[in-house]
Simulated scan of single mutants.
Amino acid sequence: MPTLATNNEAIAVIIIFRVEPDRQTKLLETIAEFLETVKEQPGFISSSIHKSLDGVKVANYAQWQSVEDYEAFLNDADVQAKAAKLRTFSPPDAHTYEIFISESKVGTPQIQTGEYVVHIAEFRMSPENQPAMVELAKEHVKPAMELPELISATFHRSFDGTRVINYGHWRDSSAIEELRKQPGFGSESPYWEGIAENEFHLYEVLFTEPAT
């Protein structure tokens, strides 16, 4: 199973699709079909497919050995031709990341099916604001981890400076509302105000595909 740790040698590629609820299942089927090609590519490690509980997002958390391997995959015309069906959906938000915080109550967090509800928070910012967002995340992750239902929180920063993503594990889908009641985490005066825009969704992990 993929692990989420600051000492991972792999890079993370997080790809988030926005989709109409009535097309979410079709998108998931299309991604699964294309993964049969992806998992054979040099440098590919794993791909974990998530669907949002509200039906409007699909997230692919992939791991590759290096940025160079991932870019070679993107630049392979034959491989990308096989992704034609994916391009009938809205363009995804796709970036390469490194992990800079990983807090957990259960050892090294893992991506696996059926155990936790996944919370993916997408912070979008201009590159000059990413360092400030990173410091704010470091400051606020420990207070959040005091909530008993939050099992882990793993923060990623994109190499292009425009994203920070928190991948969290929760015991149940209602528990996150307790976090939103805490100072700095709700809609009023959130800790990222003026630095980033935030959107979050709750997901279930459907499956994890390793390399061939």
Rank of each mutant, 00 (worst) to 15 (best):
V205T: 02
V134Q: 08
Y191K: 09
L202I: 03
S189F: 10
D160P: 02
V106G: 10
K85Y: 10
F200G: 02
L150C: 04
P127L: 09
T37M: 12
P92W: 07
E204D: 09
V56Y: 12
H95Y: 12
A84I: 04
A153D: 04
T162H: 11
I120E: 07
E193W: 14
L74F: 11
G43Y: 06
E29F: 09
V205E: 03
F89V: 08
P21E: 14
A84S: 10
G184V: 10
P42W: 01
T96C: 14
H50T: 11
T212D: 06
E9S: 12
F73M: 13
R87E: 15
E98R: 12
D78H: 11
Y167G: 02
H201V: 10
A12G: 05
P42V: 07
E193Q: 15
I165Q: 06
L74K: 15
P109I: 04
P21W: 08
E128A: 14
K26E: 11
H140S: 05
S173A: 00
F207Q: 13
K82E: 05
A83C: 04
A72K: 08
V106H: 13
V118M: 07
E139A: 13
Y116L: 01
T208L: 08
L27S: 02
F17T: 06
Q65E: 14
S102Y: 02
S189Y: 08
A132S: 09
F155G: 00
E135K: 11
P42Y: 03
Q63F: 04
T208S: 01
R163G: 07
K82L: 13
F123V: 11
V38L: 08
F17E: 02
Q182A: 15
E197C: 13
A77W: 14
R180W: 10
Q112K: 03
K138A: 12
F185K: 12
L136A: 00
V205Y: 00
A81W: 05
I151G: 01
P42L: 03
L147A: 14
A121L: 14
D93N: 15
I11Q: 04
I15D: 11
H169E: 05
M125Q: 02
G194Q: 06
A12E: 05
K85F: 09
A12D: 03
L28N: 09
A153Q: 02
G43V: 01
A32T: 13
V106M: 14
F34H: 09
G184D: 02
I111T: 06
A175F: 00
T96I: 14
S173N: 01
V56R: 06
P148F: 11
